[in-house]
Structures are given as structure tokens and as C-alpha cells.
């Protein structure tokens, strides 16, 4: 009798164990790491006002840091532990390597969504923001269309996605630097004819007097591309949470709210995404 029961229950037990093991295996490494440490390491910008910059006391703030805080709240709810954000300052040239190498769990750092980037990291659908490239230069400089920069020397940021395309198209000589401040200094020093820059960042600069007195955007924004948040590959649960989060941002109009909060001109992208998701 006993043996019979044992025989009957063993496979069930084994099945349960297997099921348990299966859930464990599918649980996602990023979630475990965040939960264990009570910390969300985020690759983010601190030199990209107003998206990510430092407050007077050194704390990183900005539109993207507000978004990161929203992710933190959602993670706390999901994982049931207190979580604090550990911001890892990155620049365009090192952010993907940092995420790949596990230095951070999440990347929200003004990164453009590109197919070749998706080969090494998971970029979350939908994208959360969008911007394109424009030329910031002295008002006296004669640039009226993109063709006018043919064979000229231009400043840019190291790792910016437009560098190679524009270099190939217009045969420009590029003077690039690791930080945003250096590119600005080089432009102001007259080291280059103009600065290839993100239009959203340029708009913010031009709101300040030291810029709008002598500088302006010269051409129509091109290569409009959307920004993606990213996580390491192979974390299905975290990915699902992020997808839901960003969809929510568009649905609730949070992005537009933050644009207003940080004095950024409302982008057509944020408005159209809100239209698209608000009734879903």
C-alpha cells in the first residue's frame, strides 16, 4: 500500500520539482540582481541638459531621470522591495559597452534606436522619445542647406549616430570630443564651422542668452530617429515590464507633461505617440 502511494506520488513530486525548476530558470537575471541589491543601476546622461544633467548639489536630474524614477517605482511595486537608483553617468561612446558588460541594468541615455544596436542589447518597444540632427552655428556663418557643409570642418560628439553618414555624404572633416561641454567650447572657439547636434538639445541651448545672441539652427532637422530604452539581452520579465511602462508613458501623456516641466518644445513624436496609445 505504502509502496503504491509512494509510486503514485513520486512522479507528481518530480513533476512539481521540475515545474519549480522551470519557473526558476525562466525568472530573469536582471530582476534577481535588482532585488538582491535593492538597487537599479541605470546608465544615464549627466551632460545633456535638460534630459540628464546635474543639479547644483550634484544629483542627476532631468527629463530622463524623471522617467528612470518612474521605472524605479514600478519595480518596487513588482518586486516588493525598496529600490534605489544608482545612476551611472555615460557618454555616447561608452553607454552600450557599459550595458553589455553589466555595469548597469537599464539604459536610458538619449540613445537612438538602430537595428545594429539591437544585435547586442534589447531595445524596448515602443521608443520613448525622438530627435534628429541639425547644425548649430554662428548667425553670420553662411549655411542654408545641408549641402553647404560639403568639405567643411564640423564639430560633433564621439559616438553620435549621424557622424559616419554625414561624413560619407558631405565629406566633412569631423572634430569630435567625448563630452558635450568640449564640443560647445570648440564651437565657441571657432574650431569648426558648426556643431552637428541633436535638435532637442540645441533648442534647449538656444533658450539661453549666451547661445541665442550669436548662434542659431541653420537647416531642417534630418535623420529624425527615435530614442530607445535598453536592457541586457535575455531578461524577458524585465523587458515586459519596460514595454508596459513605456506604453503607459505614452498613454498617460507623461512624456508631454515632462516636456512642459523641463521647458522642451513639444515634439511631434510625443504628441503622436500619445494619440496612438491614449485609447488602448
Amino acid at each position: 500500500m505504502f509502496r503504491k502511494i509512494l509510486h503514485g506520488t513520486l512522479p507528481v513530486l518530480a513533476g512539481l520539482c521540475a515545474a519549480g525548476a522551470a519557473t526558476d530558470a525562466s525568472a530573469d537575471a536582471a530582476f534577481d540582481k535588482i532585488k538582491d541589491r535593492g538597487e537599479l543601476a541605470v546608465c544615464s546622461k549627466v551632460d545633456y541638459k535638460p534630459f540628464g544633467f546635474r543639479d547644483t548639489d550634484g544629483t542627476p536630474i532631468g527629463l530622463e531621470h524623471d522617467l528612470i524614477d518612474d521605472v524605479r517605482l514600478r519595480l518596487e511595486e513588482k518586486l516588493g522591495v525598496a529600490i534605489k537608483v544608482n545612476p551611472i553617468p555615460v557618454i555616447a561612446a561608452n553607454r552600450i559597452q557599459f550595458l553589455e558588460g553589466g555595469k548597469c541594468d537599464l539604459l536610458i541615455a538619449t540613445m537612438t534606436d538602430k537595428p545594429e544596436r539591437r544585435r547586442t542589447i534589447d531595445i524596448i518597444e515602443p521608443n520613448y522619445y525622438s530627435s534628429g540632427v541639425n547644425i548649430l552655428a554662428l548667425k553670420t556663418v553662411n549655411i542654408n542647406e545641408w549641402g553647404d557643409i560639403q568639405d567643411q570642418k564640423m564639430c560633433s560628439s564621439q559616438g553620435a549616430f549621424w557622424n559616419k553618414d554625414l561624413q560619407q555624404k558631405y565629406n566633412i572633416e569631423l572634430l569630435t570630443f567625448a563630452g558635450i561641454a568640449e564640443t560647445e567650447q570648440a564651437l565657441m572657439d571657432g574650431r569648426c564651422l558648426g556643431l552637428l547636434t541633436d535638435d532637442s538639445l540645441a533648442a534647449m541651448r538656444l533658450a539661453q542668452e549666451r547661445w541665442n545672441k550669436d548662434y542659431e539652427l541653420k537647416v531642417d532637422t534630418i535623420m529624425d530617429a527615435s530614442w530607445g530604452a535598453a536592457i541586457q539581452q535575455g531578461n524577458p520579465d524585465f523587458k515586459a515590464l519596460m514595454e508596459e511602462t513605456i506604453t503607459d508613458w505614452h498613454k498617460s501623456g507623461k512624456i508631454m507633461e515632462l516636456e512642459d516641466k523641463w521647458d522642451v518644445k513639444r515634439t511631434p513624436f510625443a504628441t503622436s505617440m500619445h494619440e496612438k496609445y491614449k485609447d488602448s
Partner: peptide, 14 residues
């Protein structure tokens, strides 16, 4: 090193 950096920023072949 500068050129290598420009290349790997696009190709991700660090």
C-alpha cells in the same frame, strides 16, 4: 585610437 573609437561607435566591434 580616435579613428578606432569612431569606427566602433558605429559598428560595435570594440
Amino acid at each position: 585610437l580616435y579613428v578606432a573609437n569612431q569606427i566602433w561607435a558605429v559598428e560595435f566591434n570594440v
